[in-house]
Design a protein around this nucleic acid. Sequence first.
DNA 1: CTATTTTCGTGAAACGTTTCACAACTTGTA
DNA 2: TACAAGTTGTGAAACGTTTCACGAAAATAG
Lengths: 218, 218
Amino acid sequence: MRDRRISESTIHRLSHYYRALTALEREHFDTVSSKELANREELTPAQVRKDLSFFGSFGTRGLGYPVKELKERIARILGIDRFWNVALIGVGNIGSALVSYKEFARQGFNIKLLFDNDQRKIGSNHKGITVLGMDDLERQLNENKIELVILAVPASSAQVIVDHVVNCGIKAILNFAPIKLAVPDDVFLRTENMSMELEYLSFSLVNNLPRKSDRKKT
Amino acid sequence: MRDRRISESTIHRLSHYYRALTALEREHFDTVSSKELANREELTPAQVRKDLSFFGSFGTRGLGYPVKELKERIARILGIDRFWNVALIGVGNIGSALVSYKEFARQGFNIKLLFDNDQRKIGSNHKGITVLGMDDLERQLNENKIELVILAVPASSAQVIVDHVVNCGIKAILNFAPIKLAVPDDVFLRTENMSMELEYLSFSLVNNLPRKSDRKKT
DNA sequence: CTATTTTCGTGAAACGTTTCACAACTTGTA
DNA sequence: TACAAGTTGTGAAACGTTTCACGAAAATAG
């Protein structure tokens, strides 16, 4: 074992492989070559092999990779071979869309609790979940063993709320507010900035950037 | 300055600079140093300078960069110094959230048209926009001079619909379906995969991945 | 059984990006 | 004017990622 650090891009590509393998399984393929896997996600065979070899070799020379085993293995690496209890804070436009977003549930992310600090929303019901007030946050997160929090609040209140969430002991946060949030070093924070990709498109249009691929790097 | 190709990461960082500069302008700063700009978006001063120098030098040695000019310049580079006519296809959970997403409008992306192929949704109203049927797509896109399409349809129908959109002459598409779409080389396509960041978080939690700031050498 | 084909796994090479380090320039002070 | 402090712009070095190329292994055909 040489350099034991895994890059962000590799992890993101694992998500792609997982997606492709799910399709391959549905199509009843037993094995898949690095070439086929690469084609499906617009990568190169060498990159697929490098990525997968990072976690040990489970391909068979002359044949390829076993679809089912590889899929399970990647699920385990990504931590989606289990269920995650998720709380969602902010039941506005984005928030209420995310409650119903089936892809999350499909990957094992179960939104168990909803929070908002708008009195008019507290007590209301979304997909069978009752919206709670923020004062109850810590007790509810603990009692429901929440490990992951999705933040869909306005940028203006995001930092205050993320501080509160961090104080409750949460170690992983997905932020949808278009703002840079500060968290302690032991908390994992990822920010989903939906305008950024639109800006990338407008940049491409005005600069006539020749296309390389559809994939994101960071 | 020899290599004339701009990297995807640089473009994404421009979005970050733009965001920071918007805040700095609001805080009435006239100039900003690469150091300050870097701090605000958790980058390094050298990287900020390299990125900005790529588009010509507009900083002043000893002083920094002029906030207002730099912001305008980046807006021009990103193509957000103007308005874009946008159509949104698929008025489901995600789609209807995006109609109300203020950040888009703030950056000049005006959602002008809504489409869906569900008879029950056609004719309904979202934020003052009437949902149209898909058979009217080409005429409506042309008449309204739509340059950019956001796709918020189920993965199962995404490819068919993107083909239709491409046939209408659209050259830039933002896809929210968690699937790899095929488009001709002259069409810009970006895919927003919201599960991917959740998967990254679950990976981080199960692998206790040290954050970048932890690995920085002192 | 042997030859041919397929495909993996991986060190090395190529390529790309970030950081370093410093000359050059601007501002401010006296 | 002279000098100190601050900051850019940029080659060069360091670092990181992707691609190449090929040996090894397995499958397949004859």
